[in-house]
Simulated scan of single mutants.
Amino acid sequence: MSADFPLSRTAHPAPEAERIQILSAPVFGRYFTDHMAFASWTPESGWHDRGIGPLKPFTFHPGTAVLHYAQEIFEGLKAYRHADDSVWLFRPEANARRFARSARRLALPELPAEDFLASVEGLIRADEPWVPGPHGEQSLYLRPFMFASDPFLGLRPARQVEYSVIATPTGSYYSSGITLWVSDQYTRAARGGTGAAKCGANYAAGLAAQTEAQERGCDQVLYLDSAGEGKLEESGTMNLCLVTSDGRLVTPALGTILEGVTRDSVLTLATDFGLVPEERAVTLDELRSRAEEGTVTEVFAVGTAVVVTPVVAFKGHGYEFVIGNGTPGKQTMALREHVLDIQHGRAEDTHGWMRRVI
């Protein structure tokens, strides 16, 4: 374990029988492991007090800045147990770089990549028994996060910051093809906004749209651009990809959307599946017309939690339409299986994406 994050083990770990029961059917975000990683920052001392210790609550002053100004960022990545009992991370360096970009956008201090990796790996080693076995789609989801912790009600960048990593065992996020609600009331981000940053405020602002989608029988929301041009952006928790009949894998261009690690991975793998990757603006009108004529043959969503999830239908005010025959597409499922096989060590990692921890 890195000396930068020394371990102080909990005296009260979860009973083994309880942990085994949780791991038999893990649910995303419901149960947490025994430990947490942590570090603090001030302008005078920089990053200090690094460590890994028992999972415990934070204690806040009512005036703590994050509670009032939402100066906060987070990341999401997974650890996978392979058949030989080793444990691996999938492209954690990309998460470390995105965490730094998000910090810059939210005027938070940048955590060095080596600290990000040491904290994540140290927590995995401390809570290795919590990493599910090498079967199905189970994994250990890790949530690094950073927030303004100074008790101050003036609007300025934080002068006291806390960093932490917690972990939760998880299984499959969506079990089958999903339907997206196309919101014409809410937008996720605007040019110059925080759309490219992974910050909690983006997700909090999307809860009303997500609720609207669920009330209309849909699994998630699909946002359009804030300029009113009808361009597809991303879903509430994932990037969007289209497969066309002429062999293209099309995804909305970056700028106001999150630069997803799984999105980038799928674009890199596209040529292995006979697809030409293409990042460009796609309008709702184009999606609807091409779905109707059959030249958009598959749609899927990508993200750390959802991996590659087929999108089989869309709904909006006064319309709905299906993709293909309304069932998960062949290319989608092949890409999904291949990404999972790389992550779980069942396929060769030709891109050097996996990082061994144990």
Rank of each mutant, 00 (worst) to 15 (best):
M1L: 11
T10L: 01
H12Y: 12
P13D: 07
P15H: 14
A17Y: 04
I20L: 05
I20D: 03
F28E: 05
Y31E: 13
T33L: 07
D34V: 07
D34N: 14
D34G: 07
A37L: 08
F38I: 09
W41Y: 13
G46P: 02
R50N: 11
L55R: 15
L55P: 10
L55M: 15
F58Y: 12
T59Y: 02
H61S: 15
H61R: 10
G63W: 03
L77Q: 10
D84Q: 08
D85G: 10
A94F: 05
S102P: 06
L106E: 04
L111D: 03
A113C: 03
A113W: 02
E114T: 14
E114V: 13
F116Y: 12
A118Y: 01
S119C: 01
L123P: 08
I124E: 04
E128T: 15
V131C: 12
G133E: 14
H135V: 14
G136D: 03
G136H: 01
S139Q: 02
Y141M: 04
A148P: 02
A148R: 03
L153S: 12
A158K: 09
S164C: 11
I166D: 10
G171Q: 06
Y173A: 01
Y174H: 13
S175N: 10
S175R: 13
I178F: 02
T179H: 02
L180H: 00
Q185C: 04
T187W: 06
R188H: 05
A196P: 01
A197I: 09
A205R: 14
G206I: 09
T211N: 12
E212A: 12
E215R: 13
G217F: 01
D219V: 13
Q220M: 14
Y223S: 11
D225L: 06
A227P: 12
G228W: 05
G228I: 08
K231M: 13
L242A: 04
V243F: 01
T244W: 05
D246T: 13
G247K: 07
G247Y: 03
P252F: 05
T256F: 00
L258M: 07
T262Q: 08
D264S: 15
S265L: 04
F273K: 11
F273Q: 02
F273R: 10
L275D: 03
E279A: 15
V282E: 00
D285K: 10
D285I: 06
E286I: 08
L287F: 01
E292D: 12
G303C: 01
V311E: 00
A313T: 06
A313G: 10
G316K: 10
N325E: 13
G326C: 04
P328C: 06
K330P: 12
Q331A: 12
H338T: 02
D341K: 12
I342Q: 04
H344T: 15
H344I: 11
E348H: 07
